[in-house]
Design a protein around this nucleic acid. Structure first.
Length: 812
DNA sequence: TAATTCGCTAGACCGA
DNA sequence: TCGGTCTAGCGAA
């Protein structure tokens, strides 16, 4: 027996090709295949573990015996399967110790079958925990963490995690393909793949065939088949651990696999020489490579965009790489790739190759940015990177809490089935104060640090602490009367408390590091970011009826306490002599005379808050603007919430909610609005802003504004036929499809043209638009965007539209 | 398969 | 033709 220290790169079931020896053939499905990277020399090797038994728990009904359970059988793939064995164990359920049967099965596939058969004998637990996750949880292993593994030959005899493990250095290769596309979409059964580009942190290149290129980085091989095989060779030569793509799940990998089949090419990209596999994973497909991690950056970018890490107009590689690196990749010129290919012109082919390579380089940049986060997330939650990178909030958070349940010796609650809870009305959420529109000076912004998590911790919110038996007279009682335990920590509160503690500790450690570019710093940064994502997701999940720790009472208490705190701070601020101009959820904006008074106020509030809660100073702003809500113009008009602009002492502008941050407004309206706000906030020069608007009106009227500045982006969130209303975006999309124009994504880009009566009739996708309706862009885009702002300074629509002598506008 | 609620605004639609 | 209501998307937190 040998003992080795290695990083756990991947774990999965041993499928046919993975299990070569005949001694293992009877164990298919139950055997895990571990891909490990030796710490000492980085060599990658495989081991198998068939010692782990699938199981679940049964809380038996009165009088049910082990003997009865042992006799239970069921059907699995046409054969009769039986319970392997039963043990009696103790676990905690809602704080109480209960006696349970731990029911073992011979194969993970038998678990759901037997669990179903056992329904009549009592309540089942943990029968829906995925077997790979079960293995990782029970053995306390971290994916990509360092393990100490004892093995005899290829068989694992014992495996345990090494504490505080560093990260393995992973070899990453990004790739991208170009395909022949005479139809609306390339069809791998008949359309060839034309080139494959790749990029690692050391080099990049393109493989193609049968044409002439002048670039050095293009390697020309004999045929498409040779190209596919050459690509596999490059992957093997580079000992690639992570293969990165942008939407390779849905396109590149399935396409190449199909091409390989057609051409009879050897496309075994996996480490164990397996073919790429594509499986349904929720709403989309996921493509895996045995022994190498396929990192598809697209779902990661979608997730990061969703949680607000950045805001992309579209989820394209172009938008993602620009947001991340600050510089765009090679410009995409609309081109018919198949025509370039057929023409055979070296100049055009060179451009295509250059563009193809740039896509791989861009994909690598996105990967370098997001993979560390995914790795840390995987290590924290116990998911594989493959799953983490394709996961949403629930599958990230649940395994993290499951680990805590195991630590506490508690049963993991089952996933709730569809129930009446799904039909309940939404719970009351945050408090948002209506601002008075106008221009303000000297604004302090204070906010509660991690408001919802800190409330959950402070008041021990959770399904397991709700209405406990032990605190009937002295629990924490929320504003609407829900009671939570004061004696035993709820699992959610404890998890959040741990998250906040470790995040704080990491941030403290980061401050001691001087080299912000070091691997250690980057790893810590990624880890604290993962923790933040997890912490921020928990509150939302408590109100999701599909969450294992769903608690409606907990969720509505959390927001109720939040509303109470924010209003108490408002009251205190006013008593102290400040004017509170705005609140949204966890923030307070107030007018101040001295900065010191604000700091004193903050400290005074903090003395009264529970230990975990904290009011922070976000910033001091010299000037700020709130606008009237539509239809509320004039004196005493109410201000719009979630819409404001502030400028701080350094001249940094913070803008929220205005049209200029919305993608469903044209660039011309957004950019002029931004300039107007900047001019007003920085210079306070109303005349200059008015002049800019007039100039833009004239430009629009001249008909010379480029169509690209007039495009409006709107997502179709359902099938076009399901819409009750013919909106401009649905109309533009439908007309494009009828005209046989490729509209690649769910985000419709349209221009309002002069052709038609209603706006919908006038809306055409960018490719079909010949002109624009100046009147629409002036009166429906530019004017609404700027007038709301300028109206606060006494400017009227006539001032902006007529060329009469400028009014004398009072300066502020 | 899916974190939540609050809020603004548009354009279509519909009835008077 | 006008104004109210409804559908829908997107952003703030």
């Amino acid at each position: 027996m040998v003992s080795t220290r290695a990083f756990l790169l991947d774990i999965g079931y041993a499928h046919g090709s993975g299990v070569a020896t005949s001694s293992l053939s009877g164990l298919r499905g139950k055997t895990f295949r571990l891909v490990l990277k030796r710490e000492s020399d980085g060599k990658v090797f495989r081991l198998f573990d068939d010692s782990f038994e699938p199981y679940f728990y049964l809380l038996p009904r009165e009088g049910v015996t082990q003997e009865q359970i042992l006799k239970v059988t069921g059907f699995y793939r046409g054969t009769n399967v039986a319970v392997a064995r039963v043990e009696e164990v103790e676990r905690k359920l809602k704080g109480e110790i209960v006696k349970l049967f731990k029911v073992y099965a011979k194969h993970p596939g038998h678990v759901p079958v037997l669990a179903s058969e056992l329904k009549q004998y009592g309540e089942r637990f943990e029968h829906q925990v995925h077997f790979v996750l079960r293995y990782l949880l029970d053995k306390k292993l971290q994916p990509l963490g360092l393990v100490e593994v004892k093995h005899s030959g290829k068989m694992v005899m014992g495996i345990s995690a090494v504490a505080d493990s560093p990260l393995p250095s992973l070899r990453v290769l990004a790739f991208d393909i170009e395909t022949y596309n005479p139809g609306v979409k390339s069809d791998p059964r008949k359309d060839p793949c034309l080139m494959i580009s790749y990029a690692t942190n050391e080099k990049s290149g393109v493989i193609s065939y049968g044409k002439k290129f002048s670039h050095d980085f293009v390697e020309v091989v004999a045929s498409e088949k040779a190209m596919l095989e050459r690509f596999c060779e490059i992957v093997r030569e580079n000992h690639v651990d992570v293969i990165a793509t942008y939407n390779g799940d849905e396109f590149d990998l399935p396409f190449l696999r199909e091409r390989a089949k057609v051409l009879n090419a050897d496309f075994r990209l996996g480490r164990d020489r397996a073919l790429p596999r594509t499986r349904k994973k929720g709403i989309r497909n996921a493509s895996s490579l045995g022994g190498r991690i396929h990192f598809d950056a697209y779902p990661v970018v979608a997730f990061l965009n969703f949680i607000g890490a950045f805001k992309l107009q579209r989820l394209t590689l172009q938008d993602a790489v620009t947001a991340i690196t600050g510089k765009p990749k090679a410009d995409i010129v609309k081109m018919d790739i198949h025509k370039i290919w057929d023409s055979g012109l070296t100049k055009d082919l060179d451009y295509l190759a250059f563009y193809n390579r740039d896509d791989s380089i861009a994909c690598l940049a996105v990967t370098n940015y997001s993979l560390p986060l995914q790795i840390e997330m995987a290590r924290l939650t116990g998911n594989l990177v493959f799953d983490t990178s394709r996961a949403s909030a629930m599958p990230l958070v649940e395994p993290f809490i499951m680990k805590k349940a195991l630590e506490r010796g508690e049963l993991i609650p089952s996933k709730p089935a569809y129930s009446e809870n799904d039909k309940l009305p939404p719970v009351e959420g945050a408090f948002v104060k209506i601002p008075n529109p106008g221009v303000y000076e000297n604004i302090a912004v204070l906010d509660f640090k991690s408001l919802y998590p800190s409330i959950i911790i402070s008041y021990n919110v959770g399904p397991d602490s709700y209405n406990c038996d032990c605190c009937k007279s002295d629990g924490f009682v929320s504003p609407q009367g829900h009671r939570f335990c004061k004696k035993k920590k709820s699992i959610i509160a404890e998890t959040l408390s741990d998250i906040l503690d470790s995040r704080f500790a990491i941030q403290k450690k980061m401050k001691t590091l001087t080299d912000k570019e070091s691997d250690e710093y980057k790893q810590l940064y990624a880890r604290q970011w993962s923790l933040k994502i997890l912490a921020n997701s928990v509150y939302g999940l408590t109100l999701n009826p599909r969450f294992r720790w769903y608690t409606r009472e907990g969720g509505e208490s959390t927001t109720a306490w939040a509303r109470q705190y924010i209003q108490e701070v408002n009251k205190k601020a006013e008593e102290t002599g400040f004017e509170v101009i705005y609140n949204d959820t966890d923030s307070i904006m107030l007018l101040y005379k001295t900065e010191n008074s604000v700091l004193e106020f903050r400290d005074a509030v903090n003395k009264t808050l529970p230990e975990r809660m904290e009011l922070e100073l976000e910033d001091f702003y010299t000037r700020g603007l709130f606008v009237a809500k539509k239809g509320e113009a004039g004196k005493d008009g109410k201000g719009a919430r979630k819409k404001y602009a502030l400028i701080n002492k350094e001249g940094k502008i913070k803008i929220r909610g205005f049209e200029l941050v919305r993608r469903d407004w044209s660039k011309v309206a957004r950019e002029v609005q931004r300039s107007v706000l900047e001019i007003l906030l920085k210079e306070g020069n109303v005349d200059k802003a008015v002049a800019l608007v007039r100039k833009t009106v004239a430009e629009l009227q001249s008909g010379k504004v480029p169509l690209d500045d007039l495009v409006i982006l709107t997502q179709l969130r359902k099938s076009p036929k399901d819409y009750a209303i013919m909106s401009p975006e649905v109309s533009a999309y439908t007309k494009a499809i009828n005209a046989g124009i490729r509209v690649p994504e769910a985000v419709v880009m349209y221009v309002v043209t002069s052709k038609g009566k209603s706006i919908s009739e006038k809306a055409f996708v960018r490719e079909m638009a010949q002109d624009y309706d100046a009147d629409y862009y002036i009166n429906h885009q530019l004017m609404p965007a700027v007038l709301k702002i300028l109206a606060e300074l006494g400017v009227t629509e006539d001032d902006l539209l007529t060329n009469s002598k400028q009014h004398t506008l009072g300066s502020w």
